[in-house]
Write a protein that binds this DNA or RNA. Structure first.
Lengths: 181, 181
DNA sequence: TATTGTTATACTCTATAACTATA
DNA sequence: TATAGTTATAGAGTATAACAATA
């Protein structure tokens, strides 16, 4: 893609959203150095954009921002008795962060922890009635947010993006150490 | 992709990285609820994976983790005199966060701020000699990190991923409000 | 009156290490 | 000795609002 395509696309986006146009206009020809050749730059930037949009759609559900809360609710709902360490693995938290997150959700009345009878070191996670209600509402909200946010992509682009990102996730989720990669 | 493909790919990844295999093995058949249909879930998860890997490769360069430092060094190097508010726009910071970040980099000796003669409210950003040296080394490190991390993708997959993520970035970067989307 | 940037504050997330209890 | 989870703490990032200087 040429620089002029970039300028054109951003012009179009601004035209579709008048009033949201930033005032600082003097950035028409910014050089992105090598950043615009890096997948990591776009992954990180798109993450900020989609996460901020998602947060704005879910804060009304008393959850607040941050990664992991939504995943926790949904995965515990679909995997009753799930263990904190397993959940932590898939949402990239260490155990202490997981403990804090679970305490918040338990304190808010969304889930409860029981000591596993088989492994008395371990906990099993279950949603409360209130947590299950939240899960139901969350599914609707986040599905719509995802559809709306990525509606600018064609069906094929969405399918490819999902497939490729999933491949990256599955390749690294079990092997990438949490701190110090 | 079927659930068995997922299990197979994760098995392969673990086989390539013995010793890094997590001990908690009881997660072979986790249900991801609707998360594995959400682009935002994969964007957020892959962001964590690639960012943690990137941090581990750049912390030796006295920068430390967090978004924005690398982009700041490179973009100021390629756009001497760049304004803080313009930079903040592209890396998704508000002005107060930008101020703090710039203070850190100035304090570390990487850049300096001059008051713009034309617009005496504004600042112009320039790298010091030390900052330019850092930019040179950073380009090598982050390019290699990007190539290595995404080496599991085919050339076509990388090209498509870049193109599609760039499209999302360019669509929203000028229109998505910072807080409350 | 609007814009550029600063400061102060509070809040959250993250990282680390020391700790308990179970196995 | 290793694992599941907890607690405490310090650091960094984020969000907010009040502020000064300039236009």
């Amino acid at each position: 893609m040429s620089p002029s395509d970039l300028a054109r696309r951003r012009d179009e986006a601004r035209r579709r959203n008048p009033g949201k146009t930033p005032k600082t206009i003097a950035y028409q020809h910014i050089d992105f150095d090598i950043l615009d050749t890096l997948l990591s730059f776009y992954v990180r930037s798109v993450n900020l954009l989609v996460s901020q949009d998602l947060d704005s759609h879910t804060e009304a559900l008393t959850l607040g921002g941050g990664t992991g809360k939504i995943s926790t609710i949904l995965m515990v709902d679909s995997n009753p008795g799930l263990r904190p360490s397993v959940l932590a693995h898939f949402i990239r938290k260490d155990r202490s962060a997981m403990t804090k997150l679970l305490w918040q959700m338990e304190h808010a009345g969304y889930l409860q922890q029981r000591i596993s009878p088989a492994e008395r070191r371990a906990r099993e996670l279950y949603l409360t009635r209130k947590g299950k209600d939240l899960a139901r509402r969350l599914r609707l909200v986040i599905k719509k947010q995802d559809d709306d946010f990525f509606a600018i992509l064609s069906k094929e682009e969405k399918a490819t993006l999902t497939r490729v990102l999933r491949k990256v996730y599955e390749t690294y989720i079990d092997t990438q150490p949490l701190a110090e990669g």
